[in-house]
Design a protein around this nucleic acid. Structure first.
Lengths: 347, 347
DNA sequence: TTGTATGCGTTATCAA
DNA sequence: TTGATAACGCATACAA
């Protein structure tokens, strides 16, 4: 290691504010102003400073800036998993819009585990996230309190409840699923199966199930006749659940799936069992992933505007963070995509 | 705004080291040691400190820690887009493994635009990312120099070149595609189309194209007879490219697609044109996304171990960051999934 | 409009 | 084993 000279020159590998100030022959305060509120400094000196900035290739040290300014320009998001295309898609749009506002995204994932989500929330808070995006309403009380205590602007997505205690952007999972279920019951289905995500710590899953139940009740169906299997996210698990459902007597003529990936699994299992969809059994999904229309046969599902949700969530959160305001929740519209996996029950 | 008392009590909303030190009646240095190198402090005092930490719900301020320690425990990644399932999947695994090592992931996306990627790299550097994950080899010289100058450990993924100047974990896009193409040519195809991602700033796309060309040459095909269309990522663009290709004379009997999503688009277009796959035309993909086997008919493609790549990339990067070492590049194996979209050419 | 000086919450060096 | 105390790089209140 060679000894460095006493730093008359900008010797360091990465230049600092002081280096710029020295080169431009101004104080560090002026340099700082040039970068953060350029209008507060006269044209002439600003030009000089900016040139020094460029010459040195200076970029502000983020940690120092955050420490001094008490804000990180970072938004944290905790999602179940990026492997789920709907979150990947929404988060991508979220991140793009965040970028336009000068914010950076810090993502963490919970793998659908409540305890992990909590840990991630704390981590993001410790990292000084200026705001947080979380999925759905379900959350332990102490987590809500933590959020309150730290006073971190928090927005929920992928769910909407006009009476929720935190602002949200999303849709009514219950109503959306109920709308689909009504169409299904109108076709005459009376033997019903459902493959749901684990609902214990997942209000979206619960609400979708509730939607089916609601429509069933309206159609005069005995809720006890609806056989529900809860399983983890995945094609294989969806397939396994479908097989279980088909062993039930009387055998369901329709299987509602809590999301499109589970539906893909059900579809595969049906094919493997030699069943024809929709002649022997109808299958529906939820989410409207792009590939749903490529299934064989194309999948009936509820389409959700994931990108729009992500994009607008970013706008809302930036607003919340910059103005310390609490916006009204936003309800997005979903729409039903009727495709060939849904038909009348076999006669 | 009410005036705060001179802070005899831990008045602040979020507790600091000093608060903990005061409560535990030790110096801040000791508290810091308890957290970072617990073995340097005697059991008795450590217990006292830890209790204070718990009582106050203290969590270290990340910015301050980073500033003082000159490391952020953050790894940055710039990917084209999370909407591409292969990156979502790989990054998810990357992030999980990173978490196990105590690192946090900062993701940015370039939307497949070279200039944007550069900007994101600079942003991540300014944020003090301890290490960087980038996709593929293609990069402007000044970006490579920037990385060198800042001395940021950088790992490349989704590509492998034993002579590359930066360590990488991935596979040979050229060889993988050539292997597939050889099988295709053995089936007798002589009229060839290819739908490729834009290759100007994308070495993976270039290499896949080169793979087809290599196999074609081996099969004694005139490279000029291979019609290539470059397009942006997406189902619709894939479909449009396919239609163009089918207008070519003589009409291709096989269409290689640079990735599975483009192949899905080609499949859709074929169906819309009333063409039968593979009787009228064969179609192949690349990536092996999970839903490829659900296409109608199921898609022949090259399967890449995305999760493994992400997971191991995390391990390598952490190693690079902690030990300031440069690992050997790792070559992963891909495998060909022959499915029904590939058949012999129509007779 | 610009400069001075202080503080942000940690880590780390050096003594004790 | 522990405690003072000086960085770390920047923002900002206050002064000039």
């Amino acid at each position: 290691m060679t000894r460095e000279p006493p730093s008359l020159t900008p010797a360091s590998v990465v230049p600092t504010l002081a280096d710029v100030a020295r080169l431009a022959k101004v104080s560090t305060a002026t340099v700082s102003r040039c970068l953060n509120s350029p209008d507060q400094v006269i044209e002439r000196t600003r030009a000089r400073v900016m040139e020094a900035v460029k010459d040195l290739g200076y970029a502000p040290n983020f940690s120092a800036r955050s420490l001094a300014a008490k804000q990180t320009n970072t938004i944290g998001a905790v999602i179940p998993t990026m492997e789920n295309a709907i979150f990947a898609r929404g988060i991508q749009a979220f991140q793009e819009e965040l970028g336009r506002h000068g914010y950076t995204l810090l993502v963490a994932s919970s793998s659908y585990q409540e305890a992990l989500e909590e840990e991630q929330i704390r981590t993001l808070a410790a990292r000084g996230a200026d705001g947080l995006l979380l999925i759905g309403y379900h959350r332990a009380d102490h987590v809500r309190e933590f959020l309150k205590a730290r006073n971190i602007p928090t927005l929920l997505a992928w769910a909407y409840d006009k009476d929720g205690d935190l602002p949200a952007i999303g849709f009514s999972n219950k109503n959306a699923m109920a709308d689909l279920a009504r169409i299904v019951f109108e076709k005459g289905h009376r033997q019903v199966g459902m493959i749901s995500a684990h609902s214990a710590s997942n209000d979206r899953a619960r609400d979708r199930l509730a939607g089916v139940m609601l429509a069933a009740a309206e159609a005069g169906l005995d809720p006890d006749r609806i056989h529900v299997i809860e399983t983890t996210y995945g094609i294989e698990t969806g397939a396994a659940a479908f097989r279980q459902l088909m062993a039930w007597t009387p055998r369901p003529t329709v299987v509602f799936c809590g999301n499109d990936v589970l539906a893909f699994g059900a579809l595969r299992a049906a094919k493997e069992m030699g069943m024809s969809v929709p002649d022997d059994v109808s299958i529906t999904g939820f989410d409207g992933i792009e590939l749903a229309s490529f299934a064989d046969p194309p999948l009936t599902t509820v389409h959700v505007p994931h990108r729009e949700m992500g994009r607008r969530a970013a706008g809302m959160l930036v607003e919340m963070v910059t103005n310390r305001t609490t916006p009204d929740s936003v309800e997005l519209q979903t729409d039903i995509r009727l495709r060939r996996t849904l038909g009348p029950p076999p006669s």
